[in-house]
């Protein structure tokens, strides 16, 4: 059965967006990422214009992250205080990043440098996460990953010396409120420059730098993504007229359910297992981008907009 999409100006079998929504929603509920890296190119593959793909996906993530946050909140896995502090940071970072990208573009050849940085970063984060969680899985009974302990003693002391120390009850960690705000800002800047949602960067930052338990990371990340995507959906709709309501509804039919299944499934997995799975996905995305960059594309021209 086909439905016509009034903004994308094309027709699509309803099973495609509902199915895609289900898969991406599952990842979202499981790992606390938005899944734009997967959804936007897939939608483009099915003939949705790039700008509409990116904008509509953001609208869909609003639904998936509400569904996921709600599921994780019921399990007591959302640290609202931490989420709020990260959000203040990432919101400010986003504003700075948008200005920064203009400066970078004006300098010329910025896209090349940005894409390369993105791939290296994904590769680095993915590899680190993979080996860290692998060793954690092996030494399950012993104390948590050792290399991290060393790092904490160095940076940790400095972080503890900062003022405004607060206890984050849900995460069970104490940080100065500047730490999540600054880290959120850092992710916000990078996300704006690279044109991605930032879930891939936010999750490792929360795990390794804020030292939050993996399950709380997923719930809190979703809570944070929700607000970012509300803002972006509005801007995309207001300035680009690019949100396709019908497509968004089809996607969210799948993704809201997927997010619930993901959250329930994640509950059965250990933190290390979740991390190693996420590491594999991050690495797969990095490899996918490398392949895209090196293989000759079938079409040498494309519509403007999108990622």
């Amino acid at each position: 059965m086909y439905l016509y999409l009034p903004v994308a100006l094309t027709s699509i079998s309803i099973f495609i967006p509902v199915g895609l929504g289900l898969i991406v929603g599952l990842l979202s509920g499981l790992f606390g990422v938005g899944g734009g890296f997967l959804m936007t190119p897939l939608l483009m593959m099915f003939g949705i214009p790039p700008v509409v793909s990116a904008a509509t996906d953001t609208n869909q993530i609003v639904a998936a992250s509400v569904s996921g946050t709600y599921a994780h909140w019921r399990m007591g896995n959302v640290d609202f205080k931490m989420g709020l502090h990260l959000l203040i940071g990432s919101f400010t970072g986003g504003l700075i990043g948008v200005q920064l990208i203009k400066i970078l573009r004006a300098m010329g050849n910025a896209d090349f440098a940005i894409k390369l940085t993105y791939v290296i970063m994904l590769g680095g984060v993915g590899t680190y996460m993979f080996f860290e969680s692998l060793s954690a899985l092996r030494k399950k009974k012993k104390a948590e990953f050792l290399p991290q302990e060393k790092k904490e003693s160095a940076i940790g002391r400095f972080l503890k010396s900062l003022s405004f120390q607060t206890y984050y009850h849900k995460s069970g960690v104490t940080h100065s409120i500047f730490v999540p705000i600054l880290l959120g800002g850092f992710v916000g800047i990078l996300a704006a420059i690279m044109g991605v949602g930032g879930g891939f960067l936010m999750v490792p930052v929360m795990v390794y730098m804020l030292r939050m338990p993996m399950h709380v990371v997923v719930g809190t990340s979703l809570f944070q993504i929700l607000f970012t995507c509300i803002e972006v959906t509005f801007l995309q709709s207001y300035t680009n007229h690019a949100v396709d309501f019908i497509l968004a509804v089809l996607l969210l039919l799948g993704s809201t359910v997927g997010a619930q299944i993901g959250a329930a499934f994640g509950r059965k997995l250990k933190g290390e297992q979740l991390r190693i799975l996420l590491a594999c996905i991050v690495l797969a995305v990095a490899i996918k981008i490398i392949i895209e960059l090196t293989l000759t594309p079938s079409l040498l021209i494309g519509q403007t907009g999108g990622h």
Partner: peptide
């Protein structure tokens, strides 16, 4: 609506998404 009332359209899209998320939850 997407073209001429883009602000309202955006807000409706967001509200529907939030409602759907809660509903399914």
């Amino acid at each position: 609506m997407a073209k001429n009332y883009s602000a309202i359209y955006g807000i409706i899209s967001i509200i529907v998404a939030i409602a759907a998320g809660f509903g399914v939850g």
